[in-house]
């Protein structure tokens, strides 16, 4: 697992209070990990802070799963 994927996982575990085993690439923040819309906004903000990126709202809407977050960040993280 990449360093980015490790960090993404840690953030999700911390913010959503879920078990590590639940954080699979296919896991959806809202459907599988119990996030509501505000939790999702908070996650995106944490990713922005951790990886020093700015994720525009229209792209944030496409980040709904753990795998999508990792891919996006692997592409855009500085």
């Amino acid at each position: 697992m990449s360093e980015i994927a490790e960090k993404v996982k840690a953030i999700i575990i911390d913010k959503l209070g879920v078990e590590e085993s639940e954080v699979t690439p296919e896991a959806s923040f809202t459907n599988d990990l119990g996030a509501d819309s505000l939790d999702t906004v908070e996650l995106i903000m944490e990713f922005e802070k951790e990886f020093n990126v700015s994720i525009p709202d229209d792209q944030a809407e496409n980040i709904a799963t753990v795998g999508q977050a990792v891919s996006y960040l692997e592409e855009h993280a500085k």
Partner: peptide, 9 residues
């Protein structure tokens, strides 16, 4: 601005 979405509530 990096205010937490839970700030206000």
């Amino acid at each position: 601005p990096r205010f937490n979405p839970f700030f206000i509530p």
